[in-house]
Every structure is written in structure tokens, then in C-alpha cells.
Nucleic acid binder design. Structure first.
Length: 468
RNA sequence: GGCGAGGUAGCAAAGUGGUAAUGCACUGGUCUGCAAAACCGGUAUGCGCGGGUUCAAUUCCCGCCCUCGCCUCCA
């Protein structure tokens, strides 16, 4: 099978994702900082990465997926103290919540999920190498900084080479910040942060004194540990391009002989009601928020993949309704095929959905692929298909669903929900009225049932009651 | 100011040098006492604006306008 072609942020071209070792696609995703529940914007990135992984695997290439947990930084320390918990207890709680949400969204768990706190020694070792190589220096207060001027390719990914010449207003302001005075250059960034009183019990020993690692360093150190000096692909949200990924490249390339990531995937941001998500506007939704409004995680997933991952996507409540209907439509199509081909679908190849599959291989064009799926489905007449044709179609449909990570909702009329006796009695009353051609009474009863949340479906032989 | 991503029907969102997938919504029909469900249809002469190239541009080129993001922690 042909390999996935994926846009590469560094070269700004679409390139095939062929494993360096010819076998396994080894990739790293910047994971969550666990100081609260992740919101749907965070999940857009993780869902896009999940689709990427699924497509690679569906095309026959195994993956090695590493995604970190950031469990030490200003926010985790600050909020754990507010919560009156140890950093470990606090971050473990939110890590668990993250895992629950990931499972609900049908995200494949990473093969390795390293925590920053568990890799302090690797981070210290990397700093030592950087200092030895003249790429880093310890400041008088015990902090260690990376010397950006020592790495000539700095800025290559974000195309901010001449950044120092064009310092933004906010940065000029921070130059006077007492926190920054020990740096040789404004652009140098912290590898190690000297212990401060507000860090509480959260510090570790190092050759430069007690302190904690800088945020950028953890990814570099854990990548080296689990993926080595060269690996296939690195992914994250667009906002990480600068400075986070730029800094990772600098740290890693200056402390090893490798080329670090050979391919960069960045996922565009999710917007809400046309604007940026922010706590102050109150449009930061979590899965729990949406569950309270009656939307399933799978419906959220559908929305999150309904736009191309490199274009901003606007999230609205209406888009969730739309997703619900789309998923229902897929479930109904599957059900219709299942009447001709009842066996468990195998999902090994795209079958009649080849066009959709190829669209997906072209830089993960999910909206194009789902469009192609519906296009085929709309023309398909399950009843007219032979058992073989139906089986091929059903297998193909499930192959695509698996690649997209979609699971089908249970249709209302299959849900076997218990209809309360009083509802059932009302429905029977209505049926009787209908048989007696007392249309007014029948309609009144139907409205009553609808108000109670139940729908009536009539057929020649009788009726069924279905939850609304 | 620099870098980047976008502007396509009511909403969302693909795509192509030859006159626009798909989902939702809306709507016509079949069916039904009427509905629902199902099935069969319809719905952008138009793809931010202005030029240019071309037999032909929404699609290429130039300019402009607007939106969003990054340049400080951020998926």
C-alpha cells in the first residue's frame, strides 16, 4: 500500500512518511501539561495525531508512538499548591482524567508515555553535554541557559532567523523583568531553573544547584531516551513551532550528532464561535462540559476531524448537531449493509471506498475522505447488492471508520431501551384511536408522548416507541 | 513590524485550468388519515475585492481588503 503523504512544516512540502528504519514509523507528540482538564482545542491536536497514526498503521506500517506528560512547570507547581496537594498527587489525578478523556475520544494510547519528572537525570545529562559543547552556560543564580547564538540554524523551523533584530514590544518589556537579567541574550532560554521559594518542595539536585528543568528540555531528553538522535516525525499544535520546537531542535542537535525529527507535523488551532478560545470569554469547553449538554465524545471527535488539520476549525454547538446526524447516517448505512452481510466486518481494505482512502493518504484530508464516503454510500443500494458486494462494502466502510477512529452510535430503534409501562400504554391507546380513525385523539396522544420524549413510528402492522 | 494559516451556498467544509464533493439545515415528491422513518429529487451562473496571463480561472501571477494564530506560557 502507498504511504501517507504528509505536509512537513520544515520544508513546507508534502512528503511521504516512510520509516527511517524501513519498518516502524517512530514519532513523538508533545503531550499535555496536567494541571486541569484538557479542553477540546487540546484534543483537536491529539485527535489529528491519532488519525495520522491510524492511517499509517492502516497502510501497513507499524508505529512507535511516544507522547509525554508535562508534570512539572510553573502551572503544575502553582496549582498543586493551591489545591494543597503534592505535585505528584496533583498531576497524577489530572493525568488519569486525561486518559479517561482520551479513551472516550477513541484515541489509541501511545506506546510510551514518559513523564518529565521521571526523567530529570536524562535532562541534567543533556545540559552537561550542552555546557561542555559551549552551547549553554550557568548563570550566577544557578540557572542554566541555552546560548542561541551558538546554533546557526536556530529559527529554521519557524523562519524567525532575524528575530533578535525585531524584538516585539512584549519581549522588550520583559527585558527589564528581574527574572531575566542573568541571561547573556534576550533570546537565550532556560534549560535549568534555579530553585525559588515559591517552588516549595519541588526541586531536584544538579551540578548547578537545586532547581528544576526548563520546559523545552524535557521533550528533547525523552526523545533521545526513547527514539534516539534521529526519528521519523514530531508533532504538536502550531503554537509550539516557536519557541518550543525551535528550542528542542537546538538542544538536541547541539547535544547529539543526529538530525532530530525528519518530519514536522503541526495542527492548526480550534476556534470557538469564530474566535480564540479563552477562559475569560468562557468558551473553553471540556468533554465534560459538552457531555452535560448531551453530546458524546464521539460526536466531539467527529467535529474535531471535520476540518482539515492544517486549517483553523470553527467549533459551534450546531457543528455537534451536524456531527450527530452524520454519525447516525453512517450507522444507518452500516445497518442496511449488515442486513445483506451480517458477518462481523473485517476492515482490511477500502473496497469501494478506495477514493476516500486515497484522499486520506493525501495529507490526511479527512473532510475530503468523509465526503467521498458519503458519496459512495448515497449511490449504494444495499438491497440490490450480492452478499459478496455487500461484504466488500461493509468491510471497506469499517476500514475507513477505523482509519478515522470513528465508532458508530447505537441506533435508537436498536437500543432496546425499556419503554416505561405508562408510555407503552399511552402509545397503545393512540394506536387504538388510530385504528378507530379518531385522528384528533391519536394526534393528541402522539403529542403527549413527544413531550415526554418518545417518538412513534407506525407501520402497517403496528407501531414502535423510540426514545427521542 | 516579522512569520504563518485562512476567506467557497443559511451553517460547516472539500476540490479543480474547462463552469463547484460532502454533512447539517431548508425544501419538492413517494409513502402515511396527517406525521415520523425510509426512499427519490431540489437548493452557490457562484468560490473576499481589483487587475493580469489563458481559447478558458474559483483554481496560476500581481496588488489590495478582511479574519485568525505565532513572535511571552499556550494544542
Amino acid at each position: 500500500m502507498p504511504a501517507l503523504k504528509l505536509h512537513d512544516t520544515l520544508t513546507r512540502t508534502d512528503r511521504e512518511t516512510t520509516p527511517l528504519d524501513g519498518k516502524t514509523l517512530r514519532f513523538y507528540c508533545c503531550g499535555p501539561t496536567v494541571y486541569g482538564p484538557a479542553h477540546i482545542g487540546n484534543f483537536r491536536t491529539f485527535v489529528a495525531q491519532d488519525v495520522m497514526r491510524r492511517v499509517v498503521e492502516a497502510s501497513g506500517t507499524p508505529t512507535l508512538h511516544v507522547r509525554n506528560i508535562t508534570d512539572v512547570d510553573d502551572k503544575t507547581i502553582r496549582d498543586s499548591q493551591k489545591a494543597g496537594q503534592t505535585l505528584t498527587a496533583f498531576t497524577q489525578g489530572w493525568t488519569q482524567k486525561f486518559h479517561t478523556d482520551c479513551a472516550a475520544l477513541n484515541l489509541l494510547p501511545p506506546h510510551i508515555e514518559p513523564s518529565a519528572v521521571a526523567h530529570i537525570s536524562q535532562q541534567v545529562a543533556m545540559i552537561e553535554k550542552l555546557i561542555a559543547g559551549g552551547h549553554a552556560y550557568a548563570a550566577p543564580d544557578g540557572s542554566v541557559y541555552f546560548r542561541v547564538s551558538s546554533y546557526k540554524d536556530y529559527g529554521k523551523l519557524s523562519h524567525l532567523e532575524d528575530r533578535e533584530l525585531r524584538l516585539g514590544a512584549s519581549e522588550a518589556a520583559s527585558a527589564t523583568d528581574s527574572d531575566e537579567y542573568t541571561k547573556d541574550s534576550l533570546t537565550d532560554f532556560a534549560l535549568w531553573k534555579a530553585r525559588k521559594p515559591e517552588d516549595g518542595e519541588n526541586f531536584w539536585p544538579s551540578p548547578w544547584g537545586e532547581g528544576r528543568p526548563g520546559w523545552h528540555l524535557e521533550c528533547s531528553a525523552m526523545i533521545l531516551e526513547y527514539l534516539g538522535e534521529d526519528f521519523d516525525l514530531h508533532s504538536g499544535g502550531v503554537d509550539l513551532i516557536f519557541p518550543h520546537h525551535e528550542n528542542e531542535i537546538a538542544q538536541s542537535c547541539c547535544s547529539t550528532h543526529g538530525h532530530f525529527a525528519h518530519h514536522w507535523m503541526h495542527v492548526a488551532h480550534l476556534m470557538v464561535d469564530g474566535g480564540k478560545m479563552s477562559k475569560s470569554i468562557g468558551n473553553l469547553y471540556t468533554l465534560e462540559d459538552l457531555a452535560q449538554r448531551g453530546y458524546s465524545a464521539m460526536e466531539v471527535r467527529y467535529v474535531l476531524i471535520s476540518g482539515h488539520y492544517r486549517a483553523p476549525l470553527n467549533f459551534t454547538m450546531h457543528s455537534l448537531d451536524s456531527a450527530r446526524q452524520a454519525l447516525q447516517k453512517l450507522a444507518k448505512a452500516d445497518k442496511a449493509l449488515a442486513t445483506v452481510s451480517p458477518a462481523l466486518p473485517e476492515a482490511k481494505s477500502a473496497g469501494p471506498f478506495q477514493e476516500a482512502w486515497e484522499t486520506l493518504l493525501n495529507d490526511l484530508n479527512v473532510p475530503g475522505a468523509t465526503g467521498a464516503i458519503f458519496g459512495v454510500l448515497n449511490k449504494l443500494k444495499p438491497a440490490a447488492l450480492s452478499a459478496e458486494e455487500a461484504t466488500a462494502a461493509r468491510n471497506g466502510l469499517h476500514f475507513m471508520l477505523q482509519a478515522l477512529g470513528l465508532t458508530l452510535p447505537v441506533l435508537a430503534d436498536e437500543a432496546a431501551t425499556d419503554v416505561p409501562a405508562d408510555i407503552q400504554a399511552l402509545a397503545q391507546q393512540r394506536w387504538d384511536a388510530k385504528q378507530a380513525k379518531d385522528w384528533a385523539a391519536a394526534d393528541t396522544l402522539r403529542k403527549e408522548l413527544e413531550a415526554a420524549g418518545w417518538l412513534i413510528k407506525d407501520s402497517k402492522e403496528g407501531f414502535t416507541v423510540v426514545a427521542k
